[in-house]
Amino acid sequence: MSTHRIFGTAFAKVYPLYVQKAERKNRTKEEVDQIICWLTGYDSSGLQRQIELENDFQTFFAQAPAMHPNSKLIKGVVCGVRVEEVDDPLMQKIRHLDKLVDELAKGKVMGKILRE
């Protein structure tokens, strides 16, 4: 069974792209960090450590303290794929993160993004 190449991509290489996407829409790096920490259970120092270690997505999510229980409420389409229908658990986590950053960039209120 082959794995998707994003699994081996360093989270630290994609993270600045998330921040750039948000900042282009007048959102902040802090908001991106808040979303990532909400989803994964990392605190800000844990997130920074993952970036410094340049861990790949597989390791980033494997070492995540705890995926938020409300992450199952994340629904919608990313890159033409419905996130709730993704079979591979790791790919679904990556798509959840992509969807949350998309929602931030589209101007959604943080409370709705964090499924409060």
Rank of each mutant, 00 (worst) to 15 (best):
S2K: 15
S2D: 13
R5F: 14
R5P: 14
R5L: 09
R5Q: 10
G8W: 13
A10F: 08
F11W: 12
A12C: 10
A12T: 11
K13F: 06
K13S: 09
V14K: 06
Y15P: 07
L17V: 11
Y18N: 09
Y18T: 06
Y18P: 07
V19K: 05
V19P: 08
Q20L: 13
K21W: 11
K21R: 15
E23R: 14
R24N: 11
K25T: 08
K25S: 12
K25C: 10
K25L: 03
K25F: 11
N26G: 04
T28Q: 05
E30V: 02
E30N: 05
E31N: 01
E31V: 00
V32L: 05
I35Y: 04
I36L: 12
C37S: 02
C37G: 01
T40M: 03
G41R: 04
G41K: 03
G41D: 08
D43V: 04
D43W: 09
S44I: 14
R49Y: 04
R49F: 05
Q50H: 13
Q50R: 15
E52G: 00
N55A: 00
F57C: 01
F57L: 03
F57E: 00
Q58P: 01
Q58A: 07
T59D: 05
F60E: 00
F61Y: 12
F61G: 00
A64Q: 05
A64Y: 08
P65I: 00
H68G: 01
H68C: 00
P69S: 03
N70A: 07
K72W: 01
K72N: 06
K72Y: 05
K72E: 13
I74G: 02
K75M: 06
G76S: 01
V77L: 08
V78P: 02
V78F: 13
G80K: 10
V81C: 14
V81Q: 15
R82I: 02
R82M: 05
R82L: 09
V83I: 15
V86C: 04
V86E: 11
D87T: 14
D87L: 13
D87V: 13
D88T: 04
D88G: 02
D88I: 06
D88F: 13
L90N: 11
M91A: 15
M91Q: 15
Q92V: 05
Q92K: 15
K93L: 12
K93G: 02
R95Q: 11
L97G: 09
L100C: 15
V101Q: 03
V101Y: 06
D102K: 12
D102T: 10
D102W: 10
D102L: 13
E103V: 00
E103F: 10
A105K: 02
A105H: 02
G107D: 04
G107R: 06
K108E: 14
M110N: 09
G111Q: 15
G111T: 12
K112A: 08
I113Q: 10
R115A: 12
E116W: 10
